[in-house]
């Protein structure tokens, strides 16, 4: 991987961290607001089903995770396990695909 690509990864991780910070705040605030009256999970799901806004929000949340986690793990693997060969990037691309699949599966379940 060339230096320009490495610099882009670094920038993408910082940008995704900013998005994640906002998403986590909205997610936590919503959770606290939603359960304060004793709503069950099933009742919450009836409210989220078909909501394009929540679908878009959680899709962005998942995308930020898919970008952020593998890039962070890339540094951890390089520094802790000295795994710096191209196989590391392929493995992390697979992880990104896995995170996206699992994340969107959950988002689709919330959407309906």
């Amino acid at each position: 991987m060339n230096v320009r690509a490495q610099a882009i990864l670094w920038t993408a991780q910082r940008a995704s961290a900013a998005v994640l910070g906002l998403c986590v705040l909205v997610h936590l605030a919503t959770m606290i607001y939603a359960v304060r009256g004793g709503l069950t999970a099933a009742e919450i799901l009836t409210r989220t089903h078909g909501s394009v806004a929540w679908f878009a929000f959680y899709s962005v949340f998942v995308l930020a995770i898919v970008v952020h986690v593998p890039i962070g793990l890339r540094s951890v693997l390089g520094e802790w396990l000295a795994w710096r060969s191209p196989s590391r990037d392929w493995a992390l691309a697979v992880l990104a695909g896995f995170l996206w699949t699992m994340g969107m599966r959950a988002v689709l379940a919330v959407f309906g």
Binding site: N2, V3, R4, Q6, A7, W10, S75, G78, R84
Partner: peptide, 12 residues
């Protein structure tokens, strides 16, 4: 900047 960017440089 190319010499100091990336995994071996400032971004680490």
């Amino acid at each position: 900047l190319r010499a100091v960017a990336g995994d071996a440089g400032c971004h680490s």
